Structures are given as structure tokens and as C-alpha cells.
Simulated scan of single mutants.
Amino acid sequence: MGLTTGAFVKSRLGHDKGGCFFILREEGEYIYLVDGKSRRLNCPKKKKKKHVEPLLWEKHSPGVKIRENKSVTDEEIKHFIRCFKREEQVVRR
């Protein structure tokens, strides 16, 4: 999976380094990221594509709704990211 609309990514650089986001939309070399908490759907973070890396975690992802232009809420995004981080911690132990 590449860096397309609806993809689940992790920030590699910047003050949000290590943060998980969904790509809301693309414009050239830039993408607009949302996490449902500090970056909501109405105010996405603009970032260069080269500053993020894709994460391969698609189980019932809100990214599918974003890709299909279906209604998605900040709460759904925030909940998904919280669950992902929780599972990631379990795997690391």
C-alpha cells in the first residue's frame, strides 16, 4: 500500500514525529493528515509525502471510508489510532 488517500501512515520527521495519521487528501507532493485528536477533519496537517511512512494495518480502518468518500468522524479515527497503539505495545513486549 502506498501513500494514497485513506492510507494509515506514521510521521518520520517534524514535531509530530512518531505520530499516526490517516491521509485525508493529496495535492502534488503534499498530503493532508488527520488523527481525530489534535488534527481533526476540519483542520488537517499539511506535510510532504517524503516525511511519512505507510503502516500496514488495515483491519476495519476508517481509511476505507475516507477512500470511498463515505462519512467518517474524528471519533472513529481517534479510536482506531488508540487501538492500533495499544496493539503495537502488546506486540513489542
Rank of each mutant, 00 (worst) to 15 (best):
E29Y: 09
K50H: 07
D35I: 01
P44N: 07
R12C: 05
L55D: 05
N42C: 11
F21V: 06
L55R: 06
R25T: 10
W57D: 10
R82M: 04
V72T: 05
G18T: 04
P54D: 08
K47Y: 07
K70D: 14
L55F: 02
E58M: 13
F22C: 00
I66K: 01
V9A: 02
R25H: 08
G28Q: 09
K10G: 12
E68C: 06
E26P: 02
V52F: 01
V9C: 05
K48I: 10
E87C: 09
M1C: 11
C43T: 09
K46S: 11
I77K: 06
M1V: 14
R93K: 10
N69H: 15
A7P: 10
I66H: 04
L3A: 02
L3N: 10
V72A: 02
F84V: 02
K17C: 13
I81D: 01
E27N: 07
W57Y: 15
L56C: 12
P44D: 02
P44S: 01
H60F: 15
T5W: 00
I77E: 06
R86Y: 15
G19E: 09
V52R: 00
R12K: 13
K10L: 10
G28L: 03
D16F: 13
A7T: 08
Q89R: 09
L24N: 14
R93G: 15
H79I: 10
D16Q: 08
G6V: 10
K47Q: 13
C20Y: 06
R86W: 10
E27K: 14
E58Y: 14
A7Q: 01
K46T: 13
R86S: 15
K10Q: 11
I81A: 04
R25F: 06
R25P: 03
T5R: 14
W57P: 06
C83E: 10
S71E: 14
F22E: 00
L33Y: 09
V9H: 06
D74R: 09
V72R: 00
H79T: 15
R92S: 14
K70V: 04
V90C: 07
G14E: 01
G19R: 09
K10E: 04
F84H: 08
V72K: 00
G36R: 00
I23S: 01
K70W: 11
K37Y: 05
C43N: 12
Y30Q: 11
F8P: 00
D16K: 13
G2T: 12
E58F: 11
C43S: 13
I31N: 03
K37F: 11
D74Y: 03
V64W: 09
G36N: 08
V9R: 05
V91R: 15
K45R: 11
H15G: 14
L41Y: 01
K45I: 13
R92V: 08
E26C: 10
P44L: 04
R67G: 01
E76T: 03
E58K: 09
S71H: 13
E68W: 15
G28F: 12
L13K: 06
